[in-house]
Simulated scan of single mutants.
Amino acid sequence: MLLRLRIALPDKPGSLGQVTRALGAAGADITQVLVLDRGAGRAVDDITVFCPDTTSKGDLVSALESVQGVAVEGVWTTREAPGTYPELEILKYIATAGDRALATLIDSMPVLFSADWAAAGTEKEPRTLVYSSWRAPQDVPLPDATPPRPVASTLEGGLHIISAPLPPLALTLLLARSEGPAFHRIEVHRLTRILEIFLTLPSTERSVARQLRK
Rank of each mutant, 00 (worst) to 15 (best):
T48L: 02
F50S: 06
F50V: 10
F50W: 14
P52M: 03
P52K: 07
T54D: 03
T55P: 00
S56I: 07
S56W: 11
K57G: 07
G58R: 07
G58F: 12
L60N: 14
L60Q: 09
S62Q: 12
A63K: 02
A63G: 03
A63Y: 12
S66T: 03
V67G: 00
Q68D: 13
G69F: 05
G69I: 15
A71G: 01
E73T: 14
E73I: 05
W76M: 01
T77N: 06
T77A: 09
T78G: 09
E80W: 03
A81W: 13
A81Y: 05
P82Q: 07
G83R: 02
T84Q: 06
T84G: 00
P86E: 04
L88Y: 10
I90E: 04
I90S: 07
L91A: 02
K92T: 09
Y93V: 08
Y93C: 08
Y93P: 00
I94E: 07
A95D: 10
T96A: 11
T96D: 13
A97F: 05
A97H: 07
G98N: 06
D99A: 09
D99K: 11
D99C: 09
R100Y: 04
R100M: 05
R100L: 07
A101P: 01
L102Y: 06
L102I: 10
L102D: 09
L102Q: 11
A103E: 06
T104Q: 06
T104F: 07
T104D: 01
L105H: 01
I106T: 10
D107Q: 08
D107L: 01
S108F: 02
S108E: 07
M109W: 07
M109S: 01
P110Q: 12
V111S: 12
V111G: 02
V111N: 06
F113P: 00
S114L: 04
A115W: 13
D116T: 04
W117G: 00
W117H: 12
A118T: 12
A118L: 01
A119G: 10
A119C: 04
A119H: 03
A119T: 15
G121Q: 02
G121T: 11
T122E: 10
K124Y: 05
K124T: 14
E125N: 14
E125P: 05
T128S: 04
V130P: 02
Y131C: 00
S132V: 08
S132F: 06
S132H: 13
S132R: 07
W134F: 02
W134S: 14
W134N: 14
R135K: 05
A136V: 08
A136S: 04
P137Q: 11
P137Y: 05
P137E: 15
Q138R: 14
Q138D: 04
D139N: 07
P143G: 03
P143K: 13
D144Y: 13
D144K: 08
A145D: 09
A145M: 09
A145E: 12
T146R: 02
T146W: 00
P147Y: 07
P147I: 11
P148Y: 08
P148D: 05
R149W: 13
R149M: 13
R149K: 06
P150K: 10
V151S: 10
S153Y: 09
T154F: 11
L155I: 11
L155F: 12
G157F: 11
G157K: 13
G158M: 03
L159C: 12
H160P: 00
S163D: 02
A164K: 06
P167N: 05
P167K: 13
P168N: 13
P168A: 14
L169R: 01
L169W: 10
L171I: 13
L171H: 12
